[in-house]
Nucleic acid binder design. Structure first.
Lengths: 168, 168
DNA sequence: CAAGATTGAAGGATCAATCTTT
DNA sequence: AAAGATTGATCCTTCAATCTTG
């Protein structure tokens, strides 16, 4: 008892001592989810820095790259796919355009809209980074067997199902 | 095929079409981890706002609360527990102290150090919020059976093990 | 009026540099 | 020299307000 536990185990023990009335069951999942995301996010951020990218800029470039030729999407589509607000996308595009990795063009079919396109530099930069990015992810899950990875992926998908419903 | 999948399934399909050479296995886990953390984080953030708190301020206050009487920790201990840098803690303490939720005092045993203490207001504010915070977490995992929740927690703990080793 | 994008204000984060104390 | 905390620069994010177009 009280040995070999992780950070979340310790948190739960401390809460139980202070507030034994609370139901801490959900923390076993949600607490570990947040902790694991924070730790893995740090590692991925550090790795992308070697390519002059942040997680934010990588996600945007990757969304354009995955769309296939001509690597062009509406700004609003980028916002929805990355779960960010339109203001965030505007700011990111300013920075990426300044670095020459994307280009903005007016949407000919809807003059309110903006189409965003990967430049050759942006395409190259992303393709440079993506292999390393996936290798870093592979290292993170290498402690789990293939079976464990499948189970974990399936359970996270079930969790994601529920979370989608609770969104605004 | 290509039906009923979640966001990560779509990402993987798109990558497979554009770059069939990439090993996307790790994305099944790491991609869903990031997506689930982002969605759940948004919900928790919104809920805490009703109590005048952010996830950042809640985490700091909760760490002090869990420590038990006299609800006092060194600033460095807060940084390590919350996975934040000392600069981040300094900024948060400035805001929380301005709101009267914590109080700083010099460490009598080490004159470099600062001890941070929950005020009665901070204690009250946290206790107000924590029940609702846990209920929000319970709602998030309510789509999973008790067995699934246990499995998910255990697998996340295994993942966390590996992530800890890779840290700086 | 609603939708798409931009702006500015404010909070949260890291990092590197600095100051004090050990 | 190393540890604890603060500062200032910079970036990412949300939100509310605004402007243009549908």
């Amino acid at each position: 008892m009280g040995e070999g536990g992780d950070w979340v185990d310790r948190v739960i023990e401390e809460w139980s001592a202070e507030r034994p009335d609370l139901d801490l069951g959900p923390v076993e999942v949600v607490g570990r989810l947040g902790r694991a995301a924070a730790l893995s996010g740090r590692l991925l951020e550090r790795n992308l820095k070697r390519f002059g990218l942040t997680t934010a800029s990588f996600d945007l470039l990757a969304t354009l790259r995955r769309a296939g030729p001509p690597y062009r999407l509406a700004a609003g589509a980028l916002a929805r796919s990355t779960l960010k607000t339109s203001g965030t996308i505007t700011a990111r595009l300013d920075a990426l355009e300044r670095d020459g990795l994307v280009r903005r063009a007016p949407d000919p079919d809807d003059r309110r809209g903006v189409l965003v396109e990967l430049t050759p530099d942006g395409h190259r930069r992303l393709d440079d980074a993506v292999t390393s990015h996936l290798e870093a992810q592979a290292a993170m899950v290498s402690g789990l067997s293939a079976t464990e990875q499948s189970f974990l992926a399936a359970l996270l998908a079930r969790l994601l199902d529920g979370l989608d419903e609770h969104q605004p």
